[in-house]
Nucleic acid binder design. Sequence first.
DNA 1: CTTGACTCTATAGCCTGCTATAGGCTTTAT
DNA 2: ATAAAGCCTATAGCAGGCTATAGAGTCAAG
Lengths: 164, 164
Amino acid sequence: MTPAERDALVSLRKIGEVAKRSGIAVETLRFYESRGLIEPAGRTASGYRLYDDSVFERLAFVKKSQAVGFTLDQIAWIIAEAREGRRPCVEVRQMARQRLDELDEKLTELRRYRRDLKRTLDAWDREGVKEGMICGFIEGLDAAVVRPVLGRAGRWRTSERRKP
Amino acid sequence: MTPAERDALVSLRKIGEVAKRSGIAVETLRFYESRGLIEPAGRTASGYRLYDDSVFERLAFVKKSQAVGFTLDQIAWIIAEAREGRRPCVEVRQMARQRLDELDEKLTELRRYRRDLKRTLDAWDREGVKEGMICGFIEGLDAAVVRPVLGRAGRWRTSERRKP
DNA sequence: CTTGACTCTATAGCCTGCTATAGGCTTTAT
DNA sequence: ATAAAGCCTATAGCAGGCTATAGAGTCAAG
């Protein structure tokens, strides 16, 4: 019985198999480990990571947490708490609630944004190309359109870290 | 009459004043220049950038273009076209239309996403903390929730660059 | 004439979640 | 026995739009 066969009997998998089964790339799994999201059950004598099946549950947890919108840091924090026997329910709820609020904010922003763009396009269609630098581009937009541009840089959720 | 006074008479401003008037940071202005978005009307003997008032129009153009959702590269392209005497109306319209489509897509995605999160939170409130790793967190989410997670990493507009 | 505000270039960092590369061992299949 | 495939660590790069720092020159006021 080779070592590999022994491992297989107790369901220990190398990283490649975990990647295949989970659909998460090998490099990403190592990256997740570095971020404290997963960890191998052990290592072979030669240093290969060995995972038991609980890693799939863990990965599901990570994916679902991401689906809720948590950052990897938040997820790592939750996992660390859980590992120390705590159940950070209150905080997790709060985090989720905050995400919901952020989401609503973003939705409002995007809708307004979409409305403005639509208006501009319609104006172009109605009035055709006008004077101005580019096809009446500037004229087609009223000053109100010039807003913070969606939290700068087209991102959302990024903690605003700008000096006033 | 000092050189500075002469410049003032023909409305030539140094970068700091442009920054103050436009509300755009000095470094950002230089950054914009490096990206081909603006350029000084000239330089002083000692190398200071001098801008005439057209820079404000230009900056307004940039801001408005950003407000429509164009990337700096796109904006730079439009400006370059204009500088060569072309009026890339057709392309600009197409770009705007594409942005509108992307926006609609993103809105749909966000709405669905919000709905799922709301559902999860409501379930928590209704059923209280259940079994599971973290306060029934995993159980509270059904498999359908585990989706590409908003184009990965909470971004939008980023060109999808993942291998299948 | 000095001090401090301003400007210059060049380069690096931020943010997030990966993705890729280099260089070197180990295991598996032929 | 050998070569391909897989694994290891460490480090760098990407996307996008800035922001910051270092080190040095310039200019205006007191």
